[in-house]
Computed example of a mutant assay.
Amino acid sequence: MGPITTELATHLDMAFSRAILVSLSVAIIVAALTALAVGSFVSRRAVRPLRELSEAAGAVASGDYAVRVARSGYGAELDALADAFEQMARSISRTERSRAEVLRDLSHELRTPLSTVRGYHEAIADGVLPADRATFERIDAEISRIERLVDDVGRVSSAEERGLDLHVREIAVGDLLRVAARAEALAFDAKGVRLTLRPGSDSRPVLVDPDRMQEVLANLLRNALRHTPSGGHVELSARSVGEAIEITVRDSGDGIAAEHLPRVFERFYRVDDGRARGEGGSGIGLAIARALTEAHGGHIRAHSIGPGTGASFVVTLPVGRLDRSGR
């Protein structure tokens, strides 16, 4: 090109500066637009599932427990949040359904004895029945039934909410079984049902509140007696299974159909509604047994091959010992 003059050098510097300025401007604009596009895309992906969760939470708060949130697929964390919300919604739905059923069943259970009491009251007022001792004893029996039902509901609610004051201590399983069998012996003899006790050879103690566990066993034995005809047999036994003790109440009575087994521990649920009510069952004894067992860290299950084959109720309790401080 030959010698570069001062004027040419000036023009070259200006052209170079202009090219650098244009390149930087274009790069900045492209980078800004790209950042805005990427940011908008990412924010929409992140905000949309959160918005859906927020709308679903509002629906649940308004009482729509059927609303569900599908997994978004936008990340493990958002999917885990959607799964947790799904589980919460289902749990609330079950709780509300159970609450409605309990209120309906409780109303039904209270209506019968209250109607009976009102009937006696009107009969006495109209002079149809004499106001004598026998009549008032019948009324007192119905009032006692109402009181027993209310007490049962309170106990099972306290146990399910872990509101019981348990006085836990070591006790041999055999002692629990013998006390329970002795307490129910007269009722079994009166109906003509044989009660057999097999406490087992395991001497390991369990950590329980003896009074509460006696209530569990009493409910199971009374349930077995209620559904076992005269001449039948009920066995109360215990055995060691690993680090737990299984207490079994087995009867030769009515048995339970397969479709009823998952629900026998629900409050007010009866396999045979008419028969149980006629014999004085409140439909809540097994619910109390389950709640008290779970309050002790154990669990309870029912087993039956089918109607007419008898049933077994198994209470599983963890084996343990108190330390020197008594805990």
Results as ranks from 00 to 15, higher is better:
Ile4Thr: 05
Ile171Arg: 06
Ala218Asn: 14
His303Trp: 05
Ile284Asp: 05
Asp151Asn: 05
Ala287Gly: 14
Arg99Thr: 10
Arg44Met: 09
Gly285Ala: 09
Glu142Tyr: 14
Val102Glu: 10
Leu195Thr: 10
Val26Met: 10
Thr196Phe: 07
Asp272Asn: 14
Glu279Tyr: 04
Ala224Glu: 08
Val102Thr: 10
Glu55Lys: 04
Arg270Pro: 00
Glu160Leu: 04
Val193His: 11
Glu184Arg: 07
Asp13Leu: 15
Leu149Ile: 04
Asp189Trp: 07
Val206Asp: 11
Glu246Ile: 03
Glu77Ser: 13
Asp273Phe: 00
Ser201Thr: 15
Gly63Leu: 03
Thr316Pro: 03
Ala287Glu: 13
Gly320Asn: 13
Leu81Gln: 00
His108Arg: 13
Leu261Ile: 01
Val241Pro: 01
Ile28His: 08
Thr10Glu: 08
Glu243Leu: 04
Pro307Glu: 06
Thr6Lys: 05
Thr116Asn: 06
Val208Ser: 15
Asp126Ala: 12
Leu129Val: 03
Ala141Leu: 10
Leu24Gln: 12
Thr196Lys: 06
Asn223Pro: 13
Asp272Val: 12
Glu235Val: 14
Val241Lys: 05
Asp83Pro: 03
Val168Gln: 01
Arg321Met: 13
Glu142Phe: 14
Ser240Tyr: 08
Val234Met: 13
Leu50Trp: 03
Leu53Gln: 08
Glu259Gln: 00
Arg277Pro: 08
Ala70Glu: 15
Val42Ser: 08
Glu243Lys: 05
His299Phe: 09
Leu286Val: 01
Asp323Lys: 10
Leu261His: 00
Leu317Ser: 07
Glu109Lys: 06
Val102Ser: 09
